[in-house]
Simulated scan of single mutants.
Amino acid sequence: MDVSTPADDENTARHAALRATARQLLVKLGAAGLSPETVAEGSGLSVADVEAVFPHRDDLLTALVTDAYDASGAAMEEADRSAAAAGASAGARLLAVTRALRTWSFDNSAEFTLIYGSPVPGYHAPQDTVPAATRTPAVLAGIVRSALAAGELTPPRRAVPGPPLLLPQAVQLFGGTPEAPFSDLVERGMVLWSSLVGLLVFQVFSRTHDSVRDESAYFDFAIAVAAESIGLSVPLDGTAARAETR
Rank of each mutant, 00 (worst) to 15 (best):
A7D: 03
D9N: 13
D9V: 08
T12W: 00
R14E: 09
A17D: 04
A22D: 13
A22M: 12
L26N: 14
V27H: 11
L29A: 11
G33Y: 15
G33V: 12
L34K: 07
S35R: 13
T38C: 03
T38G: 03
T38W: 04
L45M: 12
L45I: 01
L45Q: 09
V47C: 02
E51V: 06
F54N: 00
P55E: 11
R57D: 01
D58A: 12
D59Y: 14
L60I: 11
L64D: 01
D70I: 02
S72A: 02
A75P: 08
E77N: 04
E78Y: 00
R81C: 01
A83R: 06
A84Q: 11
S89T: 06
A96Q: 05
R99E: 15
T103F: 03
W104Y: 15
D107M: 11
D107Y: 13
F112T: 08
L114F: 15
S118T: 13
Y123S: 05
H124N: 10
A125V: 06
A125I: 02
A125K: 01
A125P: 03
P126S: 04
Q127T: 02
P131L: 02
A132G: 02
A132L: 01
A133K: 06
P137S: 15
A138T: 09
L140C: 04
A141F: 01
G142W: 00
R145Y: 00
S146M: 03
A147D: 05
L148R: 03
A149Q: 03
G151L: 05
L153R: 02
R158M: 02
R158Q: 02
A159W: 05
P161I: 10
P161H: 09
P164G: 13
P164C: 12
L167E: 14
Q172L: 08
T177Y: 12
T177I: 15
P178H: 14
A180N: 05
A180G: 09
P181D: 10
P181K: 08
L185A: 07
L185Y: 15
L185S: 05
L196A: 13
G198S: 14
V204K: 06
F205N: 07
S206P: 04
D214V: 05
D220Q: 07
A222I: 13
A222K: 09
A224D: 12
V225N: 03
A227E: 06
A227C: 10
A227W: 00
L236F: 05
D237T: 01
D237M: 07
G238N: 01
A240K: 00
R242Q: 14
R242C: 03
T245Q: 07
T245D: 10
